[in-house]
Amino acid sequence: MKEIQATELADKLKNGENIAIIDVREDDEVAEGMIPGAKHIRLGEIPDRLEEFDRNEHYYIVCRSGARSGRATEFLEGNGIEATNMVGGMLAWEDEIETPSDK
């Protein structure tokens, strides 16, 4: 499984890279803040929402600590979707966040 550190993902955002981030946490966790531009798809919904993933895109998967996003990354890769797990999850994220009210 491919992995990326939170600081590396933050650098990609700061450098203006057009990246796709999927946050697999639950609604109450996301309400506390998520990485700007991330799309929220709860872990349990991913199998039913596979059609929303572009097989030509690379996805960075995020959760609270890195465990759920690891499971999501393995599932997506097993279904032919390129994905990378953000190690340490939002607990390791030290950069900007946005809340649903910011959108």
Results as ranks from 00 to 15, higher is better:
M1K: 05
N85W: 13
E98S: 12
S69G: 10
D23T: 04
G37V: 09
M90D: 15
M34R: 09
V62R: 00
E94W: 01
P36L: 07
A20Q: 00
V24Q: 01
D23Q: 02
M34V: 03
P100Y: 08
F53R: 00
G80W: 09
R71G: 11
H58D: 08
L43Q: 01
R55T: 15
D28H: 08
E8S: 11
G80N: 06
A67Q: 14
E45W: 11
L13K: 10
M86S: 13
G37S: 14
D102N: 14
D102H: 15
A72V: 02
A38R: 02
K12L: 15
A10F: 01
L50Q: 10
K103I: 10
L13T: 12
N79F: 05
S69C: 14
K12Q: 08
D23S: 07
L43W: 00
D27A: 10
T84F: 12
I22H: 04
E82P: 01
M90K: 02
H40E: 15
C63Y: 01
E17N: 10
E52D: 08
A20T: 00
A67L: 05
W93E: 04
T7D: 10
Y59Q: 05
G89F: 06
H40G: 12
L50P: 04
P47K: 02
K12H: 04
P47Q: 03
R71N: 09
R25P: 07
C63D: 13
E3N: 13
S69T: 05
K12V: 12
K103P: 12
D48Y: 13
K2E: 15
I35A: 10
T84D: 10
G33V: 11
A38C: 09
H40T: 09
K2D: 15
L76F: 14
A31Y: 08
G37D: 05
P100M: 07
D102K: 15
D102F: 04
R25T: 01
P36D: 02
D28I: 15
R68Y: 13
